[in-house]
Simulated assay, not measured.
Amino acid sequence: MNKSKPTIEGLLADPSFIDHCLNDDVKQSDPWSTRIENNPEDEIVYVQAKEMVLLLTGKMPESLIEAKLGAFKKRFYEVNPKQKSRYNFRTDKRSALTLFSGIAASLFLIAGIIFFLRNSAPKQEYAFNDIKGKTITTPFTERNLIKLSDGTEAILYPGSKLIISEDFNSDDRKIAISGQVYLKVFSNKAKPFVVYSKHTTTTAIGTAFYVRDFEKGNLSSVLLVAGKVKVNEPTRKTEAFLEPGTTMVVDNATLKTQKRKIDNEQLKDLTEFKLDLNNSDMKAIVNRLELFYGVQIDLSACNCQFKRLTGDYSKKSLSAILNSISFTNQVSWEIRDQKIVFLPGPNKP
């Protein structure tokens, strides 16, 4: 079933919902019962839609018909006080049902027209490969700060690519990325901002977040720094809403997703673009360096015990930090297939 916000016209057009309304022996395992129970904030919409279904099929209980007729009479006489002596509303089931069926049929017709107009135009569903337009690339040794036409700021990390759709900022705002991009989105509720990568689709209104999806990477991720975003993994149709300091990680091989939290200190460092290490082990260092510099680091070829590292490296270049790690641990590093690979043994002179 669709997870979007329910509407009366949408529910009336759904055969499974109509079956649910007409089934007197609804089981607890019925999908609609479960959905209604899990979404109490939408209960009034479900109730109104069910009442309309019962009206149109003649299955509304007599007590409810009389209650609704009484409410209708009260409202009618409030609007037309002089008509009270002219009209004598009969409250028998047949006449009341006829009256309310006419009203419901009219409402149903209006709802149907609205539903048709909203859905008659085919909705284009996009994927990473569908986004065509201006392409911006960044060399493996540089970062690139750009400003999009809507006011959104984007930082492209080394070896990354950003594609701005040809119709960007018309009905919506669509971009595609490969590598790592930090986005500070200009708020415009009328035009959703959507970021497509190979393994994720991220929708934001006004927020700041990282999208990471390297062509040859093992993991993809979306990390929310501020605001709120919705992240979809298109292949498996999974969906998650993120809060600041939360990242959704996708295993590119299995497509399994997982939510992770980062601590407040690290989140603050990211927002201020600080890289302060405090007795950090190599795993933590790699995680920080990968996100801070937008690179991929591979330790698999270097079977050694790395020493912990302390210091403020905010103003250090990536190569200076890698050289410091190499010297401290008597290992070497090189670039292979757009990855930084650590190797056993010191650099040769």
Rank of each mutant, 00 (worst) to 15 (best):
R118D: 15
A204W: 07
T138C: 13
A204G: 07
G159K: 00
T200C: 07
I175A: 00
P158E: 02
D172A: 09
I205T: 13
A226P: 01
K230L: 14
S120G: 01
I177S: 01
L117F: 12
A127E: 15
L162V: 05
D150S: 07
T138K: 02
L223A: 05
A176I: 13
K189V: 12
E142M: 03
P192Q: 01
T152A: 04
V195Y: 05
K147Y: 09
S221Q: 13
D172R: 10
I131M: 09
N129K: 15
T203N: 09
V229M: 10
L224I: 13
K161L: 01
N119V: 13
E125H: 13
A154F: 04
F214K: 01
R173T: 02
A176K: 00
T135G: 04
K161I: 03
T202C: 06
T152H: 00
V185Q: 06
V194Y: 03
K230H: 14
G217T: 05
S220K: 09
N144T: 15
V229I: 14
F209A: 08
V222H: 06
V225G: 02
F128V: 10
S170A: 09
D130G: 14
S149L: 12
A226I: 11
L145N: 12
I163G: 02
I175P: 03
T201E: 15
I205V: 15
F193L: 13
S178C: 02
P192R: 02
F128M: 07
T207P: 06
F140V: 12
Q180S: 06
V181A: 10
F209Q: 04
S170N: 07
F209Y: 14
L219V: 14
G217M: 09
D172I: 08
F168K: 06
K191R: 10
S178H: 00
S160C: 10
S178W: 00
T135V: 15
T137W: 03
S187I: 05
A204M: 08
N144S: 07
I136K: 02
E215S: 11
G217V: 10
S120V: 12
E215T: 12
H199F: 15
R143N: 11
K134D: 07
I146D: 00
L223V: 07
I164L: 01
I131L: 13
N144F: 05
A190N: 15
N119D: 15
A121I: 14
L148M: 07
V195L: 14
V195K: 03
K216E: 13
K123F: 11
L162C: 08
S220H: 04
P139F: 03
D171A: 03
L223I: 08
V194D: 04
R173V: 08
K230G: 15
N129Y: 14
P158V: 08
I146S: 00
A190V: 10
L145M: 06
G227D: 12
V211G: 03
N188F: 00
K147R: 14
K216H: 08
V225D: 13
T135Q: 10
K198A: 09
N169H: 11
E125G: 01
T200H: 06
K132T: 13
S120Q: 12
E153D: 11
V222I: 13
L148E: 03
V231M: 11
V195A: 10
F186Y: 12
F168T: 01
L117M: 09
V225M: 09
L223K: 05
Y182V: 00
G179K: 01
D167H: 08
G151A: 03
L183V: 08
Q124T: 10
L156P: 00
A204T: 11
N188P: 02
G159S: 02
K198G: 03
P192M: 04
